[in-house]
């Protein structure tokens, strides 16, 4: 097996993994702060992919340009979802939260089926079929741009949490719920803000993914599962862990496909998940 073949496959795995990572980052941020596991995460990503295809069909808007309006819309929707629906469940048992978000996911999938039907939709841009050639290595343009967008979005999120006052307040809410309330922070408002941010992350990932994959309603549960695998591998609540998990899953699937058999790709991501759960249950970068 030639080196350039392995390099091609690894690069594709890293690039796809970064987009997966951004999707999982939203899940990780929401859990890290709100302590609610969003079981409708993949479905939200699928809605974002539909939004990108609709904007493309209506206005010929490139999904990269669609990222800003779709992210803004998702921020508002995420905020409303947390403020209106999830906040009342914050103090309830975990199984209630689980059922609530599973119900939201089922409603979303069926609504998508009713609105868009079962047919696959996509965007068709010239550069989607083009590649950069570096020696014998071919890098898919759309995949490279999508990974770039994922990195920029992730960096923006890191900076927001590290340097902005709101970001610091959110981290305070995540670290010490009672302490945050004592110093006068409106914790539930920050929870809603965080859910909005996580949703915006998913929106950016969805727009990027629309360039790589045709969208159908049943994609939602698949992406929810994938996001869980990634954040558990990377460490639930860890932002860097989510990106690392995405890249690891992307690369391991690519290499398993190359060296063993392509039809057993997902088996390896679940194998990796079991390994991490056995050896480091908190995830690679998670805290106990």
């Amino acid at each position: 097996m030639s080196v350039d073949l392995v390099a091609n496959v690894v690069i594709a795995g890293v690039l796809t993994g970064l987009v997966y990572g951004l999707m999982a980052l939203g899940l990780s941020v929401i859990f890290g702060v709100v302590r609610v596991v969003n079981f409708a995460h993949g479905e939200m990503m699928t809605v974002a992919m539909y939004a990108a295809t609709i904007l493309f069909a209506a206005f010929k808007l490139d999904p990269f340009l669609a990222m800003l309006p779709v992210a803004a819309l998702f921020f508002v929707l995420g905020y409303a979802l947390q403020a209106g629906l999830i906040n009342p469940f914050i103090t309830r048992p975990e199984h209630s939260q689980f059922m609530l978000l599973v119900a939201v996911a089922i409603v979303m999938v069926n609504a998508m089926l009713m609105i868009f039907g079962p047919d696959a939709r996509n965007v068709q841009l010239d550069y989607q079929l083009e590649s950069f050639e570096i020696g014998k290595i071919l890098i898919d343009k759309a995949r490279l741009y999508a990974a770039g967008a994922a990195l920029v979005a992730a960096a923006a999120l890191f900076c927001f949490f590290r340097y902005s006052l709101t970001g610091k307040a959110i981290r305070a809410c995540a670290d010490n719920y009672l302490g945050a309330k004592v110093v006068g922070l409106n914790v539930k408002k920050y929870y809603a803000f965080t859910f909005g941010l996580g949703s915006a992350c998913v929106a950016v990932a969805g727009c990027a993914m629309a360039l790589l994959v045709d969208v159908t309603p049943p994609l939602g549960p698949y992406y929810t599962l994938l996001a869980f695998v990634i954040v558990i591998v990377g460490g639930l609540g860890s932002m860097t862990g989510a990106l690392l998990g995405g890249v690891l899953i992307g690369v391991s699937e690519a290499l398993a496909g190359l060296f063993i058999t392509p039809s057993a790709k997902s088996m390896f991501s679940f194998g990796l998940l079991i390994l991490v759960l056995l050896l480091r249950p908190q995830g690679l970068l998670g805290r106990r």
Binding site: M1, S2, A12, G257, L258, T261, P262, K265
Partner: peptide
């Protein structure tokens, strides 16, 4: 001979292998 999942969303690896 390369087998793959009919519901696959990405066939990058499969095509790389076939091309090789």
């Amino acid at each position: 001979t390369i087998s793959y999942d009919p519901a696959a969303k990405d066939l990058t690896v499969e095509v790389s292998k076939a091309k090789a």
